[in-house]
Design a protein around this nucleic acid. Structure first.
Length: 398
RNA sequence: GGCGGAGUGUCCGAGUGGUUAAAGGAGACCGGCUGUAAACCGGUUGGCUCAGCCUACGUAGGUUCGAAUCCUACCUCCGCCA
């Protein structure tokens, strides 16, 4: 029992080499040297990634970690993808400054399904085991109490997120306190050898080790990956802050969003998403374009990438109307604020404001603040544009 | 269980009876400059049948000519004591 956690006396040259390669883009690999000695064993390692299906879409931030899993797969190891359908009901407190609402089960299931679908754009299906953690976490209270006795409140409160919240007098629910215990138990149940996550997951990942040792299991090693900033270049990429690029974003949108990433973040984006340095000999504009081409090609295929760039040039370099603009049907007398509200999903008041600011164009020409009413025939076939990137073709119908 | 504090717009945060749709900041949006970058500059940022009207300051009532501001109850959160 006691010798399972002991490191072998010597680690082979080859294992050291492999470990170095696998940890090259990681921020930390803990504990030091453990991965190398694990790699020395002949059996494939079980690499765990826990995912909370709180949002349906994978964005580029997630792909940093998923890419790492792929590297492990390519080296012959087994990935265990854990869909946190049970833990999602609690909500991971990591990086949170407030409580999360509990999610309902149907939403979680739907999210999990699309999430997996998207993860397989990167992962090798053959070497991926997908499990839902409700499978083992939906336990009886006896077992749950046993689990809870393995950790102290002090340990659970140690984490930075909670310290901050307490300092700010923000609430922490007892349920949230349970999160690391449950996630840690995932590692026990799945016999994880390695767990991968963002640096914001460090506490949870390390807690998994504590749980494993509490249950007399060998302890996993932990790999933390850098957090990709969102397209604002500042905050962590996430759906809720709206600064994300989704894996399923249409090609033009993905390309466009990548072009909006601040130059200062280029290096980071290249390193984390392509595992390369940006080309030194070209300027930031071209480096960003190349980033866009490659990523669009990865998720949508090479043809899509060319089309996306062309679309970008058309709209933002040549300031032309996009090729295919969705149509919006109008009839009779058109009250512009109302039509814009319906066509673009904004309020009528907002529509009025934008018109007043010269932000609404008809076939490229700004519309004046007056009049607000037009006969449908005057707008028939015209491309109406709000701001720089929202377009609708108005079409008169009888 | 007792005592005390707090709940304001997307978020943070001023505001303690009347020019308060509510200071300031962040974010977002529009425009300018550009490489749709960032930075910077200007404007906007509750809704609507828009020179007016309606709805809003935890919820429900009440006092008052008039309330985000005072009173009562309730809900939620925080702290201290037990």
């Amino acid at each position: 029992m006691s010798n399972v956690t002991q490191e072998p006396a010597e680690t082979s040259e080859e294992a050291l080499h492999q470990a170095a390669a696998l940890t090259s883009t990681a921020v930390e690999a803990l504990p030091g040297g453990r991965l190398a000695s694990q790699l020395d064993g002949q059996a494939p390692l079980r690499i765990k990634l826990g995912i909370d299906p709180t949002a349906p879409d994978i964005h580029l931030g997630h792909t940093v970690v998923i890419n790492k899993l792929r590297e492990f797969q390519d080296a012959g190891h087994q990935v265990v993808l854990i869909i946190g359908d049970f833990t999602a009901r609690i909500g991971d407190p990591s990086g949170r400054s407030d409580q999360r609402p509990m999610l309902d089960p149907e939403r979680i299931d739907a999210n999990a399904a699309t999430f997996m679908e998207q993860a397989f754009k990167i992962l090798d299906r053959e070497r991926t085991e997908v499990r839902f953690n409700s499978e083992w976490l939906r336990m009886g209270s006896d077992q749950l109490f046993g689990l809870m006795s393995k950790a102290t409140v002090a340990q659970l409160l140690e984490r930075d997120d909670f310290q901050k919240r307490m300092a700010a007098s923000d609430p922490i629910s007892a349920l949230e306190l349970m999160y690391p215990l449950l996630q840690g138990y995932d590692s026990v149940a799945m016999e994880a050898d390695v767990e991968v996550g963002g640096t914001d997951q460090k506490f949870n990942l390390l807690f998994g080790r504590d749980m494993q040792s509490a249950f007399g299991r060998p302890q996993q090693s932990v790999l933390t990956m850098p957090i990709l900033p969102g397209i604002d270049g500042v905050k962590k990429m996430s759906k809720s802050t709206g600064n994300y690029i989704g894996v399923t974003d249409p090609p033009e949108e993905m390309f466009g969003k990548l072009m909006r990433v601040p130059d200062a973040n280029l290096q980071e984006y290249w390193n984390l998403l392509l595992s390369e340095d940006p080309p030194a000999e070209v300027g930031p504009n071209e480096a960003k374009r190349e980033l866009g081409r490659r990523l669009v090609a990865r998720f949508h295929g090479p043809e899509a990438s060319g089309a996306a760039e062309e679309h970008f040039n058309r709209l933002f370099v040549r300031h032309e109307v996009p090729e295919d603009v969705a149509e919006f049907e109008i009839t009779g007398e058109v009250h512009l604020p109302a039509a814009l509200a319906d066509a673009f999903g904004i309020s009528r008041s907002e529509a009025r404001r934008v018109i007043g600011q010269g932000g609404v164009r008809k076939d490229g020409e700004p519309l004046p603040a007056e009049p607000l009413d037009y006969p449908a025939s005057a707008l028939d076939g015209a491309v109406i544009q709000v701001g720089k990137r929202r377009f609708k073709r108005f079409v008169e119908v009888a």
